[in-house]
Amino acid sequence: MPLLQVRDLAVEFVTADGVVRAVDGLSYAVDAGQTLAIVGESGSGKSVSSLAVMGLLQSPPARIPSGSITFAGTDLLTLSRKQHRAFCGEHIGMVFQDALAALNPVYTVGWQLTEALRARHGLTRRDARRRAMELLDLVQVPAARQRAREYPHQFSGGMRQRAMIAMALAMDPEVLIADEPTTALDVTVQAQIMKLLAEIQAERDMALILITHDLGVVASVADTVTVMYAGKAVEQGEVQRIYSRPAHPYTRALLRAIPRLDHKGRQLDVIPGRPPDPLHLPDGCAFHPRCDRAEDVCRAAPPPPLAELPGGGSAACYFAVEVMADGKPAERAES
C-alpha cells in the first residue's frame, strides 16, 4: 500500500454565486522515496487538493463531499479537524509558495523553526536552539547560529525559502508537500532550491509532492506526474513517458509552452484562451474550447473519463492513443 493515497477526492466551495467544484475526483498515490509532481495552471485545483490533505481548508466555505485521504492506513478525512491537523503536523510537512508571507514577521526564524517542537514535543529552549541550527545547516543556510536569531525580513528570498523548507522538516515528516516552492524566486535560485529538495528527499527517503505550474521544473526531479485541469486529473503517468509521449492535448500544449534555448528568436508557444470559469464549466471535456484536437464528441457530454493507456499511465481524452502516437511534443505541429 502506498504511503499517502488520495482517492476520488472532491472539494467544493460554497459561494454566493453557487457551488464551485475546485477538485473533482482526484486520485493519486506517493510512496517513500518517490516524487510526485502535480502540474496545472492557476485555479486547476492543485493547491486546494494539497490543502485538503493537510486539513487547512476553511470550512465553510470549503467542504469535502467525497473521497478519502489515507496516510499509512489512517483515513485523514475520518479524523476531527483537530486530530487531522495534529496528525499532519507529525507526518506531513508543507512548504508554501511565498515564504515572506508564509513566515510570521514578528518572530525570529529560529523560534518559528522549532515552534512545533517546543509546543508539541516539549523541547527545552536550549535543545530547540540546537535543533534550529541543525535544521538551518541541513538546508545549507550559512552562519546558522546568527541566522536563527534573525527575522524573516532580514533573509533574502532564497534563504527564506530554505528556512521555510527547514521548518517543514522540523518534525521529520514522511511526506513533504511543496506548493510552488520556487515560483517567487529568481531562476538561478529556483535551480538551487529544487536541487536542495531533491537531495533532502533522497537522503531521508521521503515522499515528495511537488505542486507547480512549470513542467520544466519537474523534469529532473519527479518520478510520476499528475496533470490537472479544471479540478480534474487529465493525465497521470511516469515522468519520462509524459515528456516523450504525452497522451492529453493539454499536457502536450504545456510541454510546448516551456521556453527553449534552441528556439531562440521564435515566438513562445502559448495555450490559447484562458482557464474556464469554475462556476460555468463547458459541456463535455472542460479543455475542448482551447484544444487543437477537439472534435464533436469532445463538445458533447459526458466528459471523457480517466482511462488506462497502453504501456501504463492514464489520460482523460477520447483521442489519447492518437495524441500519444503523434509524439514529439517539443515540436510545433504546424512548424
Binding site: M54, G89, P105
Partner: peptide, 25 residues
C-alpha cells in the same frame, strides 16, 4: 493570512495559533 496557515500546517493547536500568531500579530 498565510503565516497563520503555515502555523496551522505545523499541527499546532488552534489555541496556540490564536494566541501566538493571531493575537500577537
Amino acid at each position: 493570512s498565510e503565516h497563520v496557515r503555515t502555523a496551522r500546517s505545523k499541527g499546532l493547536t488552534e489555541r496556540h495559533v490564536v494566541l501566538f500568531h493571531i493575537v500577537r500579530n
